[in-house]
Design a binder for these strands. Structure first.
Lengths: 334, 334
DNA sequence: CTGAAAGCGCTAACAA
DNA sequence: TTGTTAGCGCTTTCAG
């Protein structure tokens, strides 16, 4: 690999001059600029970001913590974030944490050792201490798709409460009066909010709220399937299920399928996220859509402003979810 | 952020000593080692990888080029690679290229500027020049899920030819005699191989091969849907479709659904990859399974050996795909 | 067992 | 407009 010294020598100038043409700083005569550029091209020179990072304190690398890259919702979100990072000249380092505080901490330490310019968090609803720490150490961070109500941190998320409300209202309007919920970890804010929205909808329609209709499940398909199985095996099973994400909803559909319970004829199922999976299920899944592209765009904007320091006030951007009616929900029979 | 100087001063030793305890090199007395460690902990010291990279020529960062992170197959593959990278102390930088040579080149340049220790390629079947260049520049690389027959490069992939053969044989054994293929870009080796396997199966069963039954499509759901639509709209439509990846197969199922053509009663559809989508479709998709986890594991092993230089011969590891029969294929009627 | 010092490739004053 | 030079934080001989 050629270094700045090779270029300088070959072009008959000093390394400072080369540095200036690389960074387009200072004033350089057109003639030398051309000569230097020509040499750079000829030697296939790539300036070392690691060397420049040492003095500039910029690595042009952003870290992203998500629960699981294999979860289509997060994969799509990551893709959106990746694209917008590239537009601004950043690389994206993705770390899956499985929502395990251990892995979260390890990933964050790695990112700090590598001097990531910023860290985007889509995980870690619980131990907010980690985040507090980051803030305190003056690390540029932003939170996405997760509420951190008690923290002063840039955030972009969807109105989870409204989402839960929309989901439940849709089912209620279809005539359902007994609706079960498969929730993710209730310690996580956004999860709690979705359930709160559901409950609110019940109240607004003067329907009774039953604590035992709320079930917590692991956040993948299998968890949804197991939990839905328990729900459907009960003697007084509900006529509808609100699954707090699409993966859980798919699990629920499988549980119904295995029991020969028709969807939506005998049980309606609604999901949350509107990941690629939803549209392609059979029946296609009714769900609450998160504006994934927009979430990614906004969070990259926030963090880049944060990194560049041209922003001093934190903000919380709340996008609104939308109900997408497909084939997995129908009016209550019997 | 504390630096090595802060630690040295606080512990009353030289920076060389601190460096040695960090890297566990040289011989340090237990007593000073303990003292230094204590100080590091107390000051929450994180050694700067960017500084050490400058001398050690190691960034502990591996780049991964894939067509699209939002494609569940690649998301799962990336997750597997990520996990194994972490085990070995590497971070993963993922770049989606949409199979566009431009983006591939840009991504690779970025990775080189950042001195990625290694680059894993799951994209770029075409312009092998890029890869040739990398090899020539002595960059550690490995190719996954893509054949580069004319290149001397570490590779781990599935036997695509066998996969195509298994898919076609399965359909033939179900009584199908007219099987269409929805292929990806035929310039890409693995794509070509799948079709070759299909053709071989036809021959082995003394069935005629029709050039016009092979259709090339963009590699996402919509492409599969459009292409399948054309196929299904023909007067002498085939009784089965072999889609060269699950996304295309899903598109095909949608096309059939829209035309009220029952799957598998009126048309059988088989996919390739066995991504998370396959099992959860309705009917669940029969497909050719790639051992995604194993692919990831092996490629990380290869590249890490390559990086550490404890390997001089290149190898090509070929894993065998398996037929997974589900509900989207059935015996030919009528 | 410990430390002094050179150097990794680049940036950023400051001089010239 | 161009060049000199002092770091950035760490590793690595080489002395002591």
């Amino acid at each position: 690999m050629a270094t700045i010294y090779d270029i300088a020598e070959e072009a008959g100038v000093s390394i400072a001059t080369v540095s200036k043409v690389i960074n387009e700083t200072g004033r350089i005569s057109d003639k030398t600029r051309q000569r230097v550029k020509e040499v750079m091209k000829r030697l296939n020179y790539q300036p070392s970001v690691v060397a420049s990072a040492l003095t500039k304190k910029r690595t042009y690398m952003i870290g992203l913590l998500i629960p699981d890259l294999a979860n289509p919702f997060f994969a799509e979100l990551a893709r959106s974030i990746e694209d917008h990072c590239h537009e601004l000249g950043f690389n994206l380092v993705i770390c899956s944490t499985d929502n395990e505080p251990d892995k979260e901490e390890r990933s964050i330490n790695l990112l700090r050792q590598k001097s990531a310019d910023g860290i985007i968090l889509a995980t870690g609803g619980k131990n907010q201490d980690i985040i507090r720490n980051l803030i305190q150490q003056n690390q540029a961070i932003a939170v996405i798709a997760r509420g951190m109500p008690s923290l002063s941190v840039d955030t972009v998320l969807v109105d989870d409460n409204l989402g839960g409300y929309l989901a439940a209202s849709h089912l209620i309007e279809l005539g359902h009066r007994d609706i079960a919920v498969i929730a993710e970890d209730l310690e996580v804010m956004s999860s709690k909010e979705r359930v709160r929205g559901y409950r609110q909808a019940l109240e607004d329609h003067h329907l009774p709220y039953r604590e035992d209709r709320i079930r917590v499940s692991a956040f993948h398909v299998k968890g949804g399937k197991d939990t839905a199985g328990q729900i459907l095996d009960e003697p007084d099973r509900p006529t509808a299920i609100f699954a707090c994400n699409d993966l859980l909803a798919i699990g629920a559909m499988q549980a119904a399928y295995e029991r020969r319970i028709a969807v939506p004829e005998e049980v309606s199922i609604i999901g949350f996220d509107n990941s690629i999976l939803a549209a392609h299920m059979n029946p296609p899944l009714t769900t609450i859509a998160q504006p994934i592209q927009e979430l990614g765009r906004q969070v990259v904007n926030l963090i880049s402003q944060e990194i560049n320091g041209d922003k001093t006030t934190k903000q919380r951007i709340v996008l609104l979810p939308e109900l997408v009616v497909r084939g997995s929900t129908g009016s209550r029979k019997g």
